[in-house]
Design a protein around this nucleic acid. Structure first.
Length: 798
DNA sequence: ATGAGACTCCAAAAT
DNA sequence: GGAGTCTCAT
């Protein structure tokens, strides 16, 4: 079975000597890129045939191995670019691989048609064989929002109380099944009936039926339908098995069962599959990822070569020691020991704060002092466990005028204005896209409300036609009120006109026209709310980005799979993101706030998955620490707002799991005015939380006593700061934060373009009036947010 | 049909 | 603290 035709062109006797020499030269030159690899990396690259598992610890050159391996396969003539299947999880990773391969072997690496995310590759395959799985090749890929709306409809159809069984939960269940590669018939009966009094399975079936009538798929289907296609059509499967002579998988520890099955089907025949991953960085279990996939690799692919990459090129000794010591507590792991030849560097610092506001302040201020010492902001990141932690930190950044960017926030295509714009284009391109139609019939408001929509639905269902067509036909009858009829007719006529427009005009111009004629752009222009300006910007960017695609169809395809915010790169900004979003990134200095039990490790992870959950949280901590090249700064607060209420917290158990020698317990810098405002909202005395062995050591180091000074306040005593003080014991002091902001924030001295009394607009706080000017720092009375101190660069004239 | 204001339940992570 | 929903008045 293992015949490998023409592995090396140079060995082909029929070739002329000139060609042979040229190939030889190519190989000699190409082989140069092997030089910089360490022995393990080299083995990972050169073990080309048969199954290979590369266990690549954090910072050990994983991407380098992957790209070099591809270059190697091509340069040695084992494969041509289109013979190689390389799958990643994110578009970013795919893009990076493409560029790096290009850099290695030049234009030869271009056009690797099968390098992409699982979903992109799946889509490509499905488009070719759509009929075989009951679709038309122009099927639409639904985003989360469409999916949710579909679920709601299904729930309503089946008379399920949406209060008790929310659409989200159904979505979760169905996603879960799809992640495990289960079609509706394959769902274990017990599980299927767990949802909505036994209706779970039926709902899944109904949902799939709805998708089918809409000629649509969701993300899960992109993989699931490939499985179906291959299982039912062995000839097609074999075709792909032959086509993909070599396969590479990035982040193998994140594959779910469906992806595993997908890969196994493809790899079955040739078994040239190289999986690269790190079991210690598996942090997507909740999304269906199976660490087992990587733990079981050698079992699944007997005779697999296993290569461990343990030499870390990123972090200093102390950071690596901290991360290694922590992860060593996990039981389910293959086991690697990262080592570095770097200096020990700075110890990992641990700092306690009285509450989350103080923690945020400390983080922001120490970033500011790093900046003052000449550290570029782009080399500083703040990594949080949950996105709800971001708000307080952002507030602080805004007040200090520290430029920051949030990474992995709401994706560009998930924003309302982009989804609306897309919906217009989707209906224009495909009049049977009911979900898109529904989304925008009454956006902007046209007076086509629920009642009208019900009517449309009724007709559409009875006549089995799409909503747009139903609308058109209903306008011919007198079933509609005159007013409704004329608006509806105007809308359907517009869509007909726009469809012609797309044919006759460059698609981005057509899109621009559609957004204007529909009144959509105008809707935001009229909107006086804080974020309208930003939304118009996004729309502009949206239209602009279309130019990069040959036609509307190509654009819509791209957009349904990827579409990320295109932010100006390289700007001098602090990065703020969740730990999950941080995977794959690195920074000189990394702040890790919120190391408190319950938050991190997250209580829900513990409740739902027990020890496995704890281990995943620990891996997350390990990921966080290993993002840092030179400095890692942990912190925790003993009081934190959760759901708007203050509660006491205790330091994360992970803190005590760090090796003592790698850690330095640091006091938070002293403050003048800590802001009395926080005490009056603190209903819980400290005594309500349990003591932790974890904290005692750190506390001893700060010279505090049990339950007493938690080291956050520097100069102030615990008692003086209201430890155990009764709620509301102190009056609310008006605006100490602003005073503080003034003390801390530096003015550049350059004169501001704004003057007192002027109306201005802030992207976060909305409209306001300038109360005072100090260089480039303004004091502004915001209409909604009150008086704040902000940098004028965040402000526009209003 | 629409908008304002009250009310509920919530936030874990994302292709 | 905030998004989404609900209710009521216009």
């Amino acid at each position: 079975m293992q015949n490998r035709p023409h592995a090396l062109p140079a060995g082909d006797g029929a070739q002329s000597s000139i060609a042979a020499r040229a190939v030889g030269a190519l190989r000699r030159e190409a082989a140069g890129y092997l030089d910089g690899l360490n022995p393990e990396q080299r083995r990972a690259v050169e073990t080309t045939d048969g199954p290979v598992l590369v266990l690549a610890g954090a910072g050990t050159g994983k991407t380098r191995v992957l790209t070099t391996r591809i270059a190697h396969l091509i340069a040695t003539g084992r494969a041509r670019p289109y013979d190689i299947l390389a799958v990643t999880f994110t578009n970013k990773a795919a893009r990076e691989m493409k560029t790096r391969i290009g850099a290695l072997i030049g234009p030869a690496g271009e056009g690797m048609p099968w390098l992409g995310t699982f979903h992109a590759v799946g889509t490509k395959i499905l488009r070719r064989h759509a009929e075989l799985v009951g679709l038309k090749s122009d099927f639409t890929i639904l985003g989360m929002d469409d999916q949710l709306r579909l679920m709601k409809q299904v729930l309503a159809d089946q008379n399920v109380d949406e209060k008790r069984w929310p659409a989200r939960a159904l979505g979760h269940a169905i996603d879960g099944w799809k992640n495990r590669g289960l079609s509706p018939e394959q769902v274990p009966p017990g599980e299927g009936s767990a949802f909505a009094f036994g209706k779970g399975g039926a709902l899944y079936t109904a949902y799939q039926a709805r998708l089918a009538t809409l000629n649509a798929v969701d993300f899960g289907d992109l993989l699931l339908l490939c499985l179906k296609l291959w299982r039912e059509n062995p000839d097609i499967l074999e075709n792909y098995q032959d086509r993909f002579r070599y396969m590479l998988v990035d982040e193998y520890q994140d594959t779910n069962v469906a992806q595993y099955l997908w890969l196994r089907l493809l790899a079955q025949k040739r078994k040239n599959v190289a999986c690269v991953g790190d079991d210690d960085q598996s942090i997507y279990g909740w999304r269906g990822a199976e660490v087992d996939n990587i733990l079981r690799f050698e079992h699944d692919f007997p005779g697999a070569a296993v290569v461990r990459l343990e030499r870390n090129y990123r972090s200093t000794g102390h950071i690596l020691a901290a991360a290694s010591g922590l992860i060593a507590r996990n039981e389910s792991r293959l086991g690697k020991t990262l080592r570095t030849e770097d200096a020990l560097g700075e110890q990992v610092t641990v700092t306690g704060a009285w509450d989350s506001e103080e923690e945020a302040r400390t983080v922001a201020e120490s970033i500011e002092s790093f900046q003052a010492k000449g550290h570029p902001l782009s080399e500083i990141a703040v990594l949080v466990r949950i996105s709800a932690q971001m708000r307080e930190i952002e507030d602080r950044f805004v007040q200090l005028g520290l430029p920051y960017r949030v990474i992995g926030g709401p994706r560009f295509y998930e924003r309302a204005e982009i989804r609306d714009a897309l919906a217009y284009l989707r209906v224009t391109a495909n009049g049977s896209d009911d979900l898109a139609f529904e989304r925008i019939v009454n956006t902007p408001k046209r007076g086509l409300g629920d009642a009208t929509l019900q009517q449309l639905h009724g007709y559409a269902r009875a006549e089995r036609v799409p909503l747009l067509l139903a609308a058109r036909r209903l306008c011919e009858t007198d079933e509609l009120k005159p007013r409704v009829r004329s608006t509806l007719r105007a809308l359907t006529d517009s869509f007909a006109r726009w469809a012609r427009l797309v044919e006759s005009q460059p698609h981005s111009e057509a899109a621009q026209t559609i957004l204007e004629e529909s009144g959509y752009t105008e809707m935001w222009q009229k909107d006086r709310s804080a974020d309208a300006a930003g939304r118009l910007e996004n729309l502009k960017e949206f239209v602009r980005s279309m130019e990069e695609f040959p036609d509307m169809a190509a654009f819509l395809e791209h957009v349904s799979l990827v579409m990320e915010a295109s932010e100006a790169e390289g700007a001098e900004r602090v990065s703020l993101m969740t730990l999950h979003a941080a995977k794959g990134l690195e920074f000189d200095t990394v702040f890790l706030p919120g190391w408190e039990d319950g938050l991190f490790p997250n209580q829900r992870a513990l409740d739902e998955s027990g020890r496995a959950g704890l281990e995943e949280e620990r891996r997350l901590a390990h990921v966080g620490l290993t993002r840092a090249r030179k400095r890692a700064k942990l912190s925790f607060a003993v009081n934190r707002r959760i759901h708007g209420l203050w509660s006491s917290t205790i330091p994360s158990r992970f803190i005590d799991e760090l090796p003592e020698s790698a850690v330095d317990v640091v006091e938070a810098p002293a403050h003048f005015s800590a802001g009395a405002s926080r005490f009056d909202r603190n209903p819980q005395p400290f005594g309500s939380s349990y003591g932790t062995p974890g904290w005692q050591r750190a506390q001893a180091n700060t010279g505090g006593n049990l339950g007493g000074n938690l080291g956050g306040g520097g100069g102030r005593s615990a008692a003086g700061r209201g430890f155990g003080a009764s709620p509301g014991g102190r009056g609310r002091a008006g605006g100490p934060r602003e005073i503080e902001g003034e003390l801390i924030a530096k003015s550049t001295g350059s004169p501001s373009a704004f003057s007192a009394g002027q109306r201005v607009f802030h992207t976060k706080f909305g409209p306001g009036t300038v109360a005072g000017v100090d260089g480039n720092k303004l004091t502004v009375d915001f209409d909604k947010a009150g008086r704040k101190m902000v940098l004028d660069s965040f402000i526009q004239a209003g």
